[in-house]
């Protein structure tokens, strides 16, 4: 059971929601796909860490073998290769590691070389197995790391799994929600928040994912994100108040569910609601 937590921008509370949902579950898996700046581990402080390097395959040219036929240059849809003054140039940050150029080269002048782009760190924190994806600074894309993170975990798919997505609605988010059974969208009570909510709302609809919204930072008075949900007929899964205490717990890198009974109950209820929705959606919208 995979539940992806996403939002149109950073700072809405994806990590707050996914970390606390994972901590509220009896036994769970938390996967941090926000590989550019993963921070779920700061809350979980997992122990017994195992690290795995993530590599991609880059083409390397043997200039002695290359005869300048340019088949690779013409083939590359990403234009990662140029042939200038009898020399082939590879632009690593543009390359998508498809391997096509290496297959195509009649001279076998292109071979693949592994390049480390980051790692996956796995550990445990009480009832939760924590997987963190880390992309090295300067690397172009974290998608290979996310693919590795979301390969069927050895803990088994029966465990409740919470995927903390990167912000936004680009490819890296699509990769993170691709295999999710349910999507939780986190929204702020501002007009800007509605704009960002709309981005991920459109995304999950394109992907035909069942979803609901968590309204975070709720204040007294009108909530534009709530109005948006009511107008569109979107299921509101729960509301988290805007409150200094929760802010303090969070900024001390503590997990609210583990240190405060009220939040244990708030996120416990939210978890139940989410699970009910997931069960309902998988039963009624089953593809099979």
């Amino acid at each position: 059971m995979k539940i992806a937590v996403l939002s149109g921008k950073g700072g809405t509370g994806k990590t707050l929601v996914s970390v606390n949902l994972a901590a509220a579950a009896t036994q769970s898996i938390y996967i941090d796909c926000d590989v550019e700046e993963p921070n779920g581990h700061l809350f979980f402080k997992p122990i017994e860490i195992v690290e795995e390097e993530i590599t991609i395959k880059m083409p390397v040219v043997d200039h002695k073998l290359c005869d300048g036929c340019r088949k690779c240059v013409d083939f590359c849809k990403f234009n990662a290769l140029a042939y200038i003054k009898d020399q082939l140039i590879v632009f690593e940050e543009v390359c998508h590691s498809c391997g096509g150029c290496m297959l195509l080269c009649p001279q076998q002048a292109l071979t693949e070389q592994e390049k480390v782009i980051g790692c996956v760190r796995s550990g445990t924190s009480e009832n939760t197995v924590v997987h963190t994806g880390i992309l090295n600074t300067g690397e172009a894309t974290g998608i290979p790391i996310i693919k590795r993170l979301l390969e069927d975990p050895k803990e088994g798919s029966t465990l409740q799994t919470f995927i903390d997505c990167p912000p936004g609605s680009a490819c890296i988010v699509m990769e993170s929600i691709k295999d999710a059974d349910y999507c939780v969208l986190v929204a702020e009570p501002t007009l800007f928040g509605v704009h960002n909510l709309n981005m991920v709302y459109e995304l999950v609809r394109i992907f035909n994912k069942p979803f609901g919204v968590v309204l975070n930072k709720c204040l007294e008075g009108e909530n534009p994100a709530e109005i948006f949900c009511l107008e569109k007929g979107i299921k509101i899964l729960g509301k988290i108040p805007y409150n200094q205490e929760l802010g303090k717990i969070n900024s001390n890198a503590e997990i609210a569910v583990r240190v405060d009974e009220r939040y244990k109950s708030l996120f416990g209820t939210l978890l139940e609601t989410v699970m009910k929705e997931v069960a309902y959606e998988t039963a009624s919208h089953s593809k099979w």
């Binding site: 849809k77 990403f78 234009n79 990662a80 140029a82 042939y83 200038i84 003054k85 632009f91 543009v94």
Partner: peptide
């Protein structure tokens, strides 16, 4: 022709120029 590229348009355009 590089204008329609998914990525690396600058590289392809520069290749044409060269």
């Amino acid at each position: 022709e590089a204008a329609e590229s998914r990525g690396g348009a600058g590289i392809k355009a520069a290749q044409t120029i060269v």
